[in-house]
């Protein structure tokens, strides 16, 4: 279980997160929705220690981790994997080496075990034929999927997805959403998914949190949110209703 308690983070004089508290239950899929620039990425990065909060606490199981040293965070990052908003692939390495990167450093595997794990991970995102390409030879969507594979290869118990489907085509979007759903079903993986996409959220989330201007404006199960009185939530829902009425499979542009 993960719990944020009154978490605040500012950059200079700009407060990005303002005393945010919520919890993530083991095995659930939690969607975090919010407009651009409300600090969704900052929130995820605080959980894995890439940014540090100004105040507040972050509990993972029974540990308060926000004051951990860089060394102590290594074990947290073994449990919690993060897929970044950008593909963030290492340009000088092939797709295979990108996916193998963490495995080589964090797990002692024999060469054929290693390549088995890499191929398995690439298969999850349907990219196993591309293992010898370099990132600049791939499309943006492919790069993003490689980056998902790179995180999955380490089999983390908790997965953080920062807009995993932004910029992907509808078919791939569905694949990725199904993947998140399956991981939760089969491996009891906890997922925190940052997204703009209310439709995906309603489809696969157990719970949804809506962030605005550093605050949580509403949270609950998809069904609860559909009854929300909050203006921003209604705004998000309106888009879903519109798109599903006009053209059921047409995706919003990123």
């Amino acid at each position: 279980m993960i719990r944020f308690v009154e978490l605040s983070k500012s950059f200079g004089s700009r407060t990005i997160l303002n005393k945010i508290s919520f919890e993530v239950r083991t095995g659930e899929i939690l969607f975090i929705l919010g407009t651009s620039g409300t600090g969704k990425s900052v929130l995820l990065k605080n959980l894995v220690g890439l940014l540090r909060p100004d105040s507040g606490q972050i509990w993972v199981d029974d540990q308060e981790i926000s004051r951990y040293s860089e060394e102590q965070y290594l074990s947290i990052r073994r449990q919690i994997g993060m897929v970044f908003q950008q593909p963030a692939l290492f340009d000088s390495l092939t797709v295979f080496e990108n996916v193998a990167f963490g495995l080589r450093r964090l797990e002692k595997l024999l060469p054929d075990e290693l390549s088995k794990r890499v191929i398995e991970s690439l298969q999850l995102v349907h990219l196993h034929q591309l293992e010898n390409r370099y990132p600049n030879e791939l499309s943006y969507g492919q790069q993003k999927r490689v980056s998902i594979a790179r995180t999955l290869a380490l089999k983390p118990k908790v997965l953080l997805f920062d807009e995993p489907t932004t910029g992907l085509d509808p078919v791939t979007t569905t694949t990725v959403n199904e993947l998140i759903f399956e991981l939760s079903q089969k491996l009891k993986t906890t997922s925190i998914v940052v997204s703009h996409d209310m439709k995906c959220a309603i489809d696969i989330a157990h719970r949804i949190i809506v962030l605005d201007k550093g605050h949580i404006v509403d949270q609950g199960t998809p069904d609860e949110l559909k009854k929300s009185e909050q203006e921003l939530v209604k705004e998000f829902l309106r888009e879903v209703l519109q798109t599903s009425q006009s053209a059921p499979t047409k995706e919003k542009l990123p």
Binding site: V48, L74, M82, Q85, Q86
Partner: peptide, 14 residues
């Protein structure tokens, strides 16, 4: 700016 530094840290690299 492409979050590769973050990715390195997540994969156990300083």
């Amino acid at each position: 700016i492409t979050e590769q530094i973050d990715a390195l840290q997540m994969l156990g690299v300083r």
